[in-house]
């Protein structure tokens, strides 16, 4: 466990050593600020963060998270540091877990900045705290899932561009296209397409409900992708 934390700490530190973290944070803050401040935060609207949680964040994250995850493993392959990393007495799972946690903590930091909107809503209205907390819980699960998708593609390739494009394509398909696709298919296929839709899985959290199905979806897909990443990393040794 100590070694996982060692890797986590290095990853967090690296976010702040590179310009990427700052660019991502600025884009994230500016976008949320604009949406919240100009479009939502006015008298007469509902005192909640529902628009922010329901539409804005999940979609903004589709663009932002791949940028955070693209270098996680790809950079190690490209620069050759993978050789020192994998010849240190750490297991493949430790490396993946550390990288995942480091990115997740940075993501939590990003989410913390949105608390200011919660404070603003609280100051001028009486929001439903239950829905606020479930919304945040949903966002944590959603972020973990996005990060595991990005980490998986970063583990597959030494090219950061390939990693970012593939993660973006998969996340965008799951987030935007599933709705449209489900209109054109019938029966069981339709049910499957609907269920892999992130918007579908996420919507109940925004409404203030913790549904075991949604919870299971995010937790198991995240764990599965992390597991596959470990296996991909393991298989790299054999090539």
């Amino acid at each position: 466990m100590g070694r996982v934390w060692t890797i986590t700490r290095r990853e967090l530190l690296c976010f702040f050593c590179s310009p990427i973290a700052y660019v991502v944070l600025v884009v994230f803050l500016a976008f949320n600020g604009y949406i919240f401040g100009f479009l939502h935060f006015r008298s007469g609207t509902e005192s909640s963060l529902r628009p922010l949680f329901g539409y804005i964040l999940p979609l903004v994250l589709v663009f932002i998270i791949p940028m955070l995850t693209m270098r996680l493993m790809s950079e190690e392959y490209r620069s050759g540091t993978i050789e020192t990393l994998m010849t240190a007495p750490v297991s493949d799972a430790t490396v993946i877990a550390g990288k995942f946690l480091g990115t997740f903590l940075f993501y939590v930091l990003m989410l913390l900045t949105t608390l200011i909107y919660a404070a603003a809503v609280y100051a001028f209205g009486s929001p439903d705290f239950g829905a606020l907390w479930t919304g945040y819980l949903g966002l944590l699960l959603l972020g973990a899932f996005y990060i595991s998708v990005g980490l998986f593609f970063s583990t597959c390739t030494s090219n950061q561009i390939v990693a970012v494009v593939c993660s973006f394509a998969v996340l965008a398909t799951l987030a935007f296209l599933t709705g449209a696709i489900s209109q054109h298919v019938e029966g069981a296929t339709r049910v499957i397409v609907q269920h892999v839709s992130i918007t579908y899985q996420f919507s109940e959290f925004v409404q203030g409900a913790i549904n075991l199905n949604n919870l299971t979806f995010f937790v198991t897909t995240t764990l599965f992708l992390l597991f596959v990443s470990v296996k991909v990393l393991e298989s790299k040794r054999w090539r």
Binding site: G2, T6, S18, S79, E83, A88
Partner: peptide, 18 residues
């Protein structure tokens, strides 16, 4: 191969932790 963004001491601390 090393991590260019880290300082030498940070790097050695990281490696010692690993």
């Amino acid at each position: 191969p090393l991590y260019p963004e880290m300082r030498v001491r940070e790097y050695l601390q990281f490696r010692a932790g690993l």
